[in-house]
Design a protein around this nucleic acid. Structure first.
Lengths: 236, 236
DNA sequence: ACATGTGAAAGAGTTCACAGCC
DNA sequence: GGCTGTGAACTCTTTCACATGT
């Protein structure tokens, strides 16, 4: 029977990219003891339009109440769940410089969602040292026997010249998600997701706008979604 | 969206975001002594379609030659110029931790396009110290008298809790371009461009894809443009 | 023959506007 | 009255397809 089979619909990529923002805000609102939030207020806090908020939230399974707004606790729970907050993804990092240390010392990687389980480098002065409680090893020496669970996320903070080799090594280890800080397009198998965090590109986008007289569009949050946050008070 | 009054722009934002990639590749091709490149090859190297390459390049002033391809030297020059490569933008950084040090020590900031001219922090152990040849000062003490040219770019590597105050301070200094690493939506005057580099969001996008099985879409480069680079040889 | 440049079509995402419900 | 949920309109971007030029 045509149409009877309901496939779990993927969310549009821009919506996925906004979920972490909603999550962060909902968590904060719960912390402040606010039970509900309107699409209008949430939109202002997230820097997107109320219509976009309603479209996004209705697509992750409506839980708003007409007349009052969205339940902050429910919103927080649902977004956290969608973003994999209930799972733990073993994470490895290659290229242990200042940037890697900044990441390792940040609150991003606890034992919660992404847990760092291995550090790699090639520099003889760095291999063998301990950073954040883990001994730095050589990626080439990795045989996978030391992992309790196989790594799921790989982070590249290595020089651009090494990026493709490291990415190949990570993919061979079975990693399915890469975040790279190297200014380099990576070629990976189709089933691997790659996120590029490219500061040089960001900087050049800024200089483009400076060079061409301003951009009224404060885009950029969530990847150029055309967001233009305005100064907002939670309770005007 | 409220407050998002957009004026017609010279180039579409996604095209602007791809310019740095074309720039980087064109530079590399010139270095390798290749005089021309086809939209097909350039697309594979940049991880976008040939049609997109042709649309982008034709919109920045056609300089391809039918039958042979694009002149790499010309392409490199034109993109560099569009991206402000001929100007120097004084840049300041607030929040001098590992991340800031990684940026300061990176080749991104020379005397070329973005030149770092001031460092700020509030920590008494950090204020007064020298990092990369500059003495860290307090943003609150800044009266602007020490600048030869007024700063154009502000970078926030401070804790999220301080981000809005720092952004306010930067905007008061007349800065028109911000890059922030704090997980926080910034509210700034309309004429200020903001780029968000939010590792926690990137990480959560990865965990979303891991949680929901596959993502054949290796999007992310240039902000989720739906790019899916495949392994490519320059001259097959 | 080959590759660009570009109208036209398609696709993706956002915003409008209002019906529906609290 | 207020606010969500959603079909429809609209805007922006990409892709197609081929005329155009070398």
């Amino acid at each position: 029977m045509p149409g009877a089979h309901r496939r779990p619909r993927l969310l549009p990529e821009p919506t996925i990219a906004r979920l972490p923002i909603y999550q962060r805000i909902a968590e904060e609102l719960v912390r402040r003891g606010l039970d509900t939030v309107s699409s209008d207020d949430l939109g202002r806090l997230a820097g997107v339009s109320a219509a976009t908020v309603r479209r996004d939230l209705s697509s992750i399974g409506p839980f708003g109440t007409r007349g009052s707004g969205y339940d902050t606790a429910h919103l927080s729970r649902r977004t956290a769940e969608l973003l994999g907050g209930d799972s733990t993804f073993p994470t490895v990092i290659a290229g242990i410089g200042n940037l890697a240390k900044a990441l390792i010392n940040s609150p991003l990687f606890g034992d919660r969602t992404a847990k760092i389980v291995a550090l790699y480098d090639v520099d003889v002065d760095i291999v063998g040292t301990y950073v954040g409680g883990l001994q730095v090893r050589r990626l080439a020496d990795e045989d996978g026997t030391s992992f309790v669970d196989p790594p799921a996320i790989g982070i590249l903070t290595c020089p651009a010249s090494a990026a493709q080799d490291v990415a190949d090594g990570f993919c061979d280890m079975g990693i399915r998600a890469l975040m790279t800080f190297s200014p380099r397009v990576l070629e990976v198998p189709r089933e691997v997701t790659v996120r590029y965090v490219d500061v040089s590109i960001e900087l050049q986008i800024l200089t483009y706008h400076l060079e061409h007289g301003r951009g009224p569009l404060n885009g950029g949050l969530l990847h150029n979604l055309g967001v233009s946050p305005v100064r907002v008070a939670l309770h005007p």
